[in-house]
């Protein structure tokens, strides 16, 4: 579904918090907070992820200079069962909350929803948030943390991180002007250790439909970001687009920029927090510095569970896309 917002919706503030491994990566220093303790001072990993989100929202509100009571609408999610990390965060925030789960595509999904609320006039401000925590994801989707296992070369490392953005009717930008709500795509990949390969077709499908609906080409954008395809997924994304006769030269994957190769992360990074924290720490600030005028952010999600994996099902995937522009581009007729 192609969404063209009636008026550009301003992204007026953003924040990101990450864990230890992320703080040792190439984006070190760009996040609002880099915590050396993956427990974030808590006693369980689930509480840690809630604390991670709470701190991230705290940074957002502090930078924006408003109180949590002033937030009119907030949406978001995480990778825990029943998105409990987010629910517990919202218990303390107290703002009207819409919980979302679309695995690692949650950030773009939340941005689309939050921008709709503002564009429709239902809220004067809206926040979208997404997080993931390596330890909650690992114990839920894979094995206990202390279990000795070798990761396959296609495996991806779940980011411990959270990103959130605030939308308002007016602001100096950047702006979200259009979006593409993805469809579930499944090209039969069953290997839960090769999620990039599973998700690449969904990203291809969403990008193709968006380009068609908006009448644009890849080269019209300064950059096209995907959320967490990793190195294997990015290569497949490129090949799939070639099969569709779409040429892409300005693609970057958030899963390939948050860690460097020496950090032993195989195919790259993954998780809702990957795209969300890179967006808030690296992509949006580049609008302020003038590097970017017009970009696409495509977050991809693999919608399986440990049960469906054990039942031998293939992995259904989804990708949501948002188009972010600077003030000049956004108001161009």
């Amino acid at each position: 579904m192609y969404i063209k917002y009636k008026r550009p919706v301003a992204i007026t503030q953003w924040a990101s918090v990450v864990g230890k491994k992320e703080s040792c990566g190439p984006l070190s220093g760009k996040f609002d907070e880099e915590c050396a303790d993956d427990y974030f001072g808590q006693t369980t990993w689930e509480k840690a992820e809630t604390e991670l989100q709470t701190r991230c929202i705290g940074h957002l509100l502090h930078k924006k200079g408003i109180d949590r009571k002033d937030v009119e609408f907030i949406t978001g999610g995480d990778l825990c069962n029943q998105i409990t990390s987010t629910a517990y965060t919202m218990r303390a925030v107290g703002a009207p909350f819409m919980g979302l789960y679309n695995a690692c595509s949650t950030m773009a999904e939340g941005m689309i929803a939050a921008a709709c609320m503002v564009d429709g006039g239902y809220a004067s401000n809206a926040v979208a948030l997404a997080s993931s925590h390596f330890c909650t994801a690992e114990r839920q989707f894979r094995t206990p943390l202390d279990y000795g296992g070798k990761r396959t070369p296609t495996a991806q490392w779940t980011v411990t991180g959270c990103g959130c953005v605030m939308f308002e009717r007016f602001g100096k930008g950047p702006f979200i002007t259009a979006a593409q709500l993805g469809r579930v795509v499944d090209l039969g990949v069953k290997d839960a250790n090769n999620m990039g390969a599973a998700m690449a077709p969904a990203a291809t499908e969403t990008l193709k439909r968006f380009l068609y609906a908006s009448g644009t080409e890849c080269r019209d954008y300064d950059a096209i970001y995907t959320g967490d395809l990793g190195r294997v997924g990015s290569e497949l994304f490129f090949q799939l687009l070639q099969n569709e006769k779409i040429n892409i030269e300005n693609h970057t994957d958030c899963g390939c920029v948050i860690f460097d190769k020496s950090q032993n992360v195989q195919s790259g990074a993954s998780g809702c927090g990957c795209g969300a924290s890179v967006l808030a720490a690296d992509i949006l600030p580049r609008f302020e510095s003038g590097d970017y005028r017009n970009i696409l952010f495509i977050a991809t999600g693999a919608l399986m569970s440990p049960a469906t994996t054990m039942q031998g099902e293939s992995i259904p995937c989804i990708a949501h896309l948002v188009n972010i522009k600077n003030k000049e581009e956004a108001h161009k007729k």
Partner: peptide, 19 residues
Amino acid sequence: MRTNKKQYDRMVKNTSPRS
């Protein structure tokens, strides 16, 4: 999409690095 499951399976096998 122009790529079907069978073709994609081959693409994934060729692209994924081996152990």
